[in-house]
Computed example of a mutant assay.
Amino acid sequence: MGESITDGTLAKFLKNPGDIVQIDEPIAQVETDKVTIDVASPEAGVIQKFVAKEGDTVEPGTKIAVISKSGEGVTPAVPSEKEKPEKEAPQPSHPAEKDSVDKQKPKAESAPVQEKSKAPSTPPPKASATEPQLPPKERERRVPMTRLRKRVATRLKDSQNTFAMLSTFNEVDMTNLMKLRSDYKDAFVEKHGVKLGFMSGFVKAAVSGLQNQPIINAVIDGDDIIYRDYIDISIAVGTPKGLVVPVIRNAEKMNFADIEKEINTLAKKATDGSISIDEMAGGSFTISNGGVYGSLLSTPIINPPQSAILGMHSIVNRPMVVNGNVVPRPMMYIALTYDHRLIDGREAVYFLRRIKDVVEDPRRLLLDI
């Protein structure tokens, strides 16, 4: 499962008892705190029976199924598994009867107490008056949280409890970046095989900002500050199972095409659930693009143990004053949430201004100004 994962939940079996499996063919899926892992068959044969059940917590080395190489004993294995619960089913009925008898006893003993307390008869009407206002239980569904969702919830709450989070905002005129994309999108696809998007521009802008303000790429460790001489950008990706953050390694050494290819590869893996733990480990800064869902403004939560996160939002045409004239411009609000224990407001504002300057005039990257 990886060094950072000690156990997981047996999500579902992909095969049934009696099915024929080949070597390395997935037979089950285990859901961990970060990703869903396929359990591959170590041998070719016929699944004789399942030892574990869906929903069980399993660790590396746990037996979950028995595979018969010869296929013998497969037919009786399924009924024998079904017979066990039938034989065991009547057993708990006896303790249940005892429980019902035990429950009746305290009721009888508590009856005199209830009769004594009958004097204030006002509480029952209050309860009966409020009960009809509650929605019926038949219209509710209780579904257990997935391990990924529980892990995300824990990490986000820990982030709020640990960091002194503060957000600063700015707005970006997307005119020049959109023109750059429009002018070279066909040539870019023809040469590099991927589309030119806005994310690569913001990653390059973030790299420039982190190089100008190294404290935002740093992190607190006890009483020390760890400065990183590398820039690994985590890209927040929403999937049906929850939020994952694949990492673009050494983004400072990449050009636009390298970044677009890496984002495209990681996004596909994250969506189909094939992304590995190693591809999500680490990261020194996160970019979250809520604009793809239509978000106009938000305050993103820091992805621990990082110290800051950049929030991108939707592009909206708004009236802006340019050279004394009011003209429509495609504008985007950007937000930086940062750990105020480590990063002062000045550094945060300078960083966000650098993002704005580079996105509004990408030629700055060529001239390094």
Rank of each mutant, 00 (worst) to 15 (best):
M331Y: 12
L148T: 11
P328D: 00
S93K: 12
K126M: 14
P76G: 05
F163C: 07
V39Q: 05
A119I: 12
T32F: 10
E279D: 10
V46Y: 10
T62W: 02
Q211M: 11
V113A: 14
G193W: 15
L14G: 04
N212A: 15
V101P: 09
M1H: 15
I220K: 00
P92I: 12
L342D: 08
E260L: 00
T57L: 08
I287Q: 10
E140V: 00
M320P: 05
T36D: 05
S121N: 07
P319A: 04
L243M: 11
T337G: 03
V237Q: 14
Q104E: 15
L365I: 14
N289S: 10
S200D: 01
D183F: 00
T62R: 09
A257Y: 01
D173N: 11
P17I: 09
A77H: 01
A267E: 13
A129C: 08
I302D: 03
K116A: 13
K15P: 13
R155A: 11
D19M: 12
D19Q: 13
A119S: 14
L266E: 01
Q114K: 07
N323V: 15
V78G: 04
L367H: 05
Y293I: 09
E31D: 12
D229R: 08
D278M: 04
K241N: 07
I369S: 12
V35C: 12
K204I: 12
Y230D: 05
E54F: 06
L297Q: 14
K261D: 01
D173S: 10
R364F: 01
R141P: 00
D24W: 04
V39E: 00
K15C: 07
L367F: 14
F198L: 07
D183N: 10
N16P: 02
A348T: 10
V21H: 08
K103W: 03
L14E: 01
